[in-house]
Design a protein around this nucleic acid. Structure first.
Length: 478
DNA sequence: CTAGCCTTGATG
DNA sequence: CATCAAGGCTAG
């Protein structure tokens, strides 16, 4: 018998109780996800962050359980900030479409007689853009109901992700004269920081999930056209972008670790002012390191010559930094506070009260942008597109392969348009609204750079840092 | 904390 | 008025 319609929770394999936070899950994972998001829980894994999650062991490691919730596509946005009860959310239409698709599939299966052992009946020749072996295999996998396969997405992904980063060495011939600077050091081809390698596994798994790699149910993706709640038929480009994402939790723990290291015995506070402010610069510096690392490993970008890569990065690092910070607030933040990449929460009034006018406007504009993102219901997929639109900026001068940059930018535009039309059919001008948001973000970025320059932080942080270099590179080139 | 059951309230 | 996915409650 076909397993495609067995309603099994994609997180733990328990019986599904309905649609919860974007997809069909069981009651317990629903509750777990809600508690975690509502209460800003943060867990740690006692093992190696790859615990098996099934019905009997799901209580054992909340860290891995939550990771799996995200990986299979449960949506943070569906947890209401205002805790309002009842009613419907924007996923309603999506649930409805998904139900219709399931029904169609059933009808199709029955019209072919009841012999439904193999999913070939519903495979569609029109949809074969999946160039990733681990994705295509999981979608046709037929022995998923066992425990071992529930983790197949993460284990099988490591192989593809490792060569993903190994291919980087191809670019190394270009890097020779950049060694002396921090950005050069990131480019120096020295072993990729462990976070990136470790994150790659989780990243590929997340992408597999986004591409319909939910192990249990085989074929929502085949009825292409629009996107199922399981996130199946995303534009091909978007799937590739998602594969390039670093894992937030991995980066978070690496940055936290490194900052604690630097903090040393001093015991600086996390507030604003004094050592806290210094720590913020160090944190931004670390974030930039990962931003560059991400760009460097990203599809298309890594095809560019290193000199072009550096020109683009010099131009957009602050946009990417601002986007990273803003989107973190959109996802996890609360009114009146700032969530740091380390997961810590800073009280905004404590930042603003002693601040100068420039920082005040910066915080205010930032808040406005976060509100704008929220009102627009900007989702993770759109943010990923933003990152590539920011990266492939056709305004950057003296880029050798300008036509490539233009080409990619156009493709991203198309993918984003296609995505918004399909994922938010009720919201026809979402694409245009998003582009407006993006220009607001650029304005915020400019303001941020001005602020950083005005602080002349070179004395505040160790001189060998990326933040300083990028600030000055921009200054010198303009 | 967990997870089963309960209450709410917009949607059709 | 029925549905059903949100949030709430509470024993274990």
């Amino acid at each position: 018998m076909c397993d495609a319609d067995v309603d099994v929770c994609p997180v733990c394999g328990d019986a599904v109780s309905g649609y919860h936070y974007g997809l069909l899950t069981c009651e317990s994972c629903k509750g777990f996800f809600k508690r975690t998001v509502q209460n800003h829980k943060s867990y740690t894994c006692a093992e190696s962050q790859d615990c098996r999650i099934d019905k009997t062991q799901r209580k054992r490691c909340p860290f891995c359980r939550f990771q799996k919730c995200l990986r299979v596509g449960m949506r943070l946005e569906a947890v209401r900030a205002d805790r309002m009860r009842g009613g419907r959310n924007r996923f309603g239409p999506m649930y409805k479409r998904h139900r219709a698709l399931k029904q169609q599939k059933h009808a199709l299966l029955h019209s072919h007689g009841l012999r439904v052992d193999y999913p070939t009946i519903i495979s569609s020749p029109t949809r074969t853009p999946l160039t990733f072996p681990n994705i295509t295999t999981t979608t046709t996998d037929r022995h998923q109901q066992t425990q071992s396969s529930s983790s197949s997405s993460s284990s099988s992904s490591s192989s593809s992700s490792s060569n993903f980063f190994q291919t980087q060495t191809r670019c190394e011939s270009h890097h020779h004269h950049y060694h002396s600077s921090p950005l050069g050091a990131v480019y120096s081809g020295s072993p990729v920081p462990p976070a990136a390698a470790a994150a790659a596994a989780a990243v590929a798994a997340a992408a597999a999930a986004a591409a319909g790699g939910r192990c249990g149910s085989s074929s929502q993706a085949q009825f292409s056209g629009c996107f199922s709640p399981q996130g199946s038929a995303l534009p091909r480009l978007l799937v590739e972008f998602l594969r390039c994402e670093l894992d937030e939790l991995q980066v978070q723990s690496k940055i936290t670790g490194r900052l604690q290291q630097m903090q040393g015995e001093g015991g600086w506070g996390w507030g604003w002012g004094g050592h806290g402010e210094k720590l913020m610069y160090l944190m931004a510096d670390q974030m930039l390191f990962y931003i560059v690392e991400w760009a460097r490993g990203s599809v298309f970008f890594k095809e560019l010559k290193v000199s072009d890569q550096m020109k683009l990065l010099h131009h957009c690092w602050c946009d990417l930094l601002a986007l990273d910070i803003v989107s973190r607030q959109v996802q996890h933040g609360r009114q009146g506070s700032l969530i740091l990449v380390t997961g810590q929460e800073v009280d905004l009034p404590a930042v603003v009260t002693p601040a100068g006018p420039l920082l005040r406007t910066l915080v205010q504009k930032g808040q406005e942008l976060v509100d704008g993102f929220r009102k627009l219901l900007v989702d993770r997929n759109e943010i990923v597109c933003f990152k590539f639109l920011i990266l492939f900026n056709t305004d950057v001068k003296h880029v050798e392969n300008q036509s490539f940059v233009e080409n990619i930018k156009e493709q991203v535009h198309r993918a984003l348009l296609e995505y918004t039309l399909c994922a938010y059919p009720q919201f026809l001008d979402k694409f245009d609204q998003l582009l407006l948001c993006l220009s607001d973000l650029r304005a915020l970025s400019t303001l941020t750079e001005e602020y950083l320059c005005s602080k002349n932080i070179s004395g505040e942080v160790p001189c060998n840092n990326l933040l300083n270099e990028l600030l000055h590179a921009k200054h010198n080139s303009m």
